[in-house]
Amino acid sequence: MKAFLDMGGYAAFIWPAYGVTLAVLVLNIIWARGSLRRALETARRRSASSGGNS
């Protein structure tokens, strides 16, 4: 396990590289879902208020 984490001495480069890529993957999921959630909320509020008016 220790040998695996050490990555033949390249640990300082490999793990940050994988970390950054994973972070970008996860952030993209969060951003995409967040934008959809916000858009849905706005749309719901709008349709609720316009439904009340008409």
């Binding site: 995409a32 879902r33 934008s35 959809l36 916000r38 858009a39 849905l40 706005t42």
Partner: peptide, 8 residues
């Protein structure tokens, strides 16, 4: 997912 948000 993003396209749905943009369309909305």
């Amino acid at each position: 997912v993003r396209v749905r948000a943009e369309i909305l």
